[in-house]
Design a protein around this nucleic acid. Structure first.
Length: 157
DNA sequence: GCCAACGTTGGC
DNA sequence: GCCAACGTTGGC
């Protein structure tokens, strides 16, 4: 089962879609993920796949825009840096634990597809709601379809 | 700021 | 290898 897309959470206070737009080449390494289920999802991402930028822990949580997987995950450099908050003493360059794909900005949506709105679509059954603490989520075709449908409705207003 | 959910750690 | 304690996430 190949996912039709991915949902990546980030706290806008730490890294927002505006941060991504301002980044060199509008590109970033999606680093700092320290959860094995999320890690496995990061490793499954393939170049060219769609990914949705979700703002969490903020006044209006929801999807704020879209990215594309620019290149497959590489070992997350932060895990080897003792000065980094993402340092992992148990990880070595020979046997890295944590990985990070490179993501590229595609677009910022003219509105937020809020978590509240998402709950009323097929996304209501997605892992965003069933696995509340998972920060990298695989989306089915139906779930991506719900996002596209919301986008389409926006465009027609 | 609270607190529920839940992944991780560490003692045994 | 169990499980209690602990820490973190993230919505509200």
């Amino acid at each position: 089962m190949m996912p039709a897309g991915w949902l990546l959470k980030s706290e806008p206070d730490t890294f927002s879609i505006d941060s991504l737009m301002a980044a060199p080449q509008k590109t970033t390494l999606w680093d700092g993920v320290r959860n094995y289920m999320a890690r496995n999802n990061l490793l499954a991402m393939q170049k060219g796949e769609r990914a949705f930028f979700y703002h969490s822990s903020c006044p209006v949580p929801g999807i704020v825009g879209e990215m594309v997987v620019m290149s497959k995950a590489i070992p997350d450099p932060a895990q080897f840096d003792p000065a980094s908050p993402y340092f992992d003493a148990k990880s070595t360059p020979e046997k890295p634990r944590w990985f990070a794909p490179k993501m590229k900005f595609v677009k910022k949506y003219p509105a937020v597809f809020t978590r509240e709105q998402m709950a009323h679509t097929s996304l209501g059954n997605s892992q965003l709601f069933t696995h509340t603490r998972l920060s990298v989520i695989a989306l089915s075709a139906a779930e991506v379809g719900a996002i596209d449908q919301w986008l389409g409705a926006l465009a027609c207003r």
